[in-house]
């Protein structure tokens, strides 16, 4: 049995200790916003915040998630910057298939929270762990700059 704190609420789950956080979120807590893309921390589709740090939930064993504050895309609108990211993403028609965007939104929210006026280099260093097969990178960059320039 493991108790994890997700989006401000404690949840106790009876799962093997090596079950990745991603699958606990998706299957046990029915929070399907975090996506499975590679299972090896290569694509970033599963990105959640663990104590505010973007973390690949697909490789984090549930045993390692205990005792940490986990935030998923479902609750990122509770943060002002999370909301701004979601709004800018919509305004600029960032998502295409949209499958990677939960992870992109989580990574961008963390970046802008930590750095309110990121340079292109900062964006590259923060966002290059998230693959978008539809190639929405240019719009992601534009949206991050737009938020930084106009709203932060």
């Amino acid at each position: 049995m493991f108790t994890i704190r997700v989006n401000g609420e404690d949840h106790t789950v009876d799962v093997p200790e090596d079950k990745p956080l991603l699958w606990v979120l998706r299957e046990d807590l029915k929070l399907t916003g975090s996506k499975y893309g590679c299972g090896q921390a290569l694509c970033g589709a599963c990105t959640v915040h663990v104590d505010d740090q973007p973390t690949r939930s697909c490789v984090m064993p549930i045993s390692a998630a205990e005792g940490h504050n986990i935030t998923t895309v479902e609750a990122i609108d509770q943060q002002q910057i999370g909301r701004l990211v979601q709004q800018a993403w919509q305004e600029l028609n960032v998502p295409q298939c949209g499958y990677c965007q939960s992870g992109q939104v989580m990574a961008a929210t963390a970046l802008l929270t930590e750095n309110r006026s990121p340079s292109d280099r900062d964006i590259d260093e923060a966002m290059s762990g998230n693959i978008c097969r539809c190639g929405t990178y240019a719009r992601i960059r534009k949206a991050i700059h737009k938020i930084a320039d106009e709203q932060l």
């Binding site: 973007p54 690949r56 984090m60 970046l111 930590e114 750095n115 923060a126 762990g129």
Partner: peptide, 12 residues
């Protein structure tokens, strides 16, 4: 990097 830490992917 500040928001792409080693621990984003590497566990214990």
């Amino acid at each position: 990097a500040p928001t792409l830490q080693c621990s984003a992917c590497h566990q214990e």
